[in-house]
Amino acid sequence: MHADPWCDLPDELPPREPEREERYTVKLEVFEGPLDLLLHLIKKEQVSIYDIPIARITEQYLDYLRRMEELDLTIAGEYLVMAATLIYIKSKMLLPRDQGPMVEAEEDDPRRELVERLLEYQKYKAAAELLWSKAEREQAVFTRGRVETDDANPEVNATLFDLFRAFHRAMERLKERQELAIAREEITMAQKIAELQARLEREERVDITALFEEARSRRELLILFLAVLELVRIAVIRVVQTERFGRILALRVRASTEIVA
């Protein structure tokens, strides 16, 4: 009769609980720190922040750290300090309080300091969310396009990173290419700057990304990159982009700009 206990299984087993499965998915929420994690646990457990069931919350807190460990995530020192604090509070709560009547004043509560920190932190967390929504609105607001007299062009600052990115990309590409150069060309930065300036005399704008791509050796690329940075620094050129992540162009800074402005 009971020869094969497995054959009955499909009928007798209740449908698999979805909860069980979830427990094994490798998903861990990210928190901004131990206080953020504690607030999350308090909310999840639907307990009052003014009367935290320390034992339960400590248990869950440690459980979270354990799961972080399982995922090989480095646990920041602050989390461990908080774990120690929680355990300390828990042990203090287990100790018999002073016998005197009415001594169970709030000041006696070992949780008091922690609760105050949580309340304080919670306010700033809410303020941060307000800032987020304000920034969100401002993201959707545009001022008129910049006119030529705008000398303080923030695009230049932003594109220094893009410039580096373009340089880096060209560098990567060079790595793949086999170098066949036999004679070692000894171009100096001064020569490169002169070369660039001569080109800018002839052309209104020079495509820097293309120049990077044309570089034949890592040395030439590096010198070119430094030359561009130097020209930006001494304000001979401006680097601009017509769109994000687009090609980077060098524009001659016209001497007349100052007069116009």
């Binding site: 909310k43 922040i49 919670q122 306010k123 800032l131 401002e138």
Partner: peptide, 23 residues
Amino acid sequence: FGLNDLSELPALEDFQELGSESS
């Protein structure tokens, strides 16, 4: 953040109420 000055930010105490409501 589209503010005219810092006084346009709500008082910090107002956030406290919001916070305790949600927990």
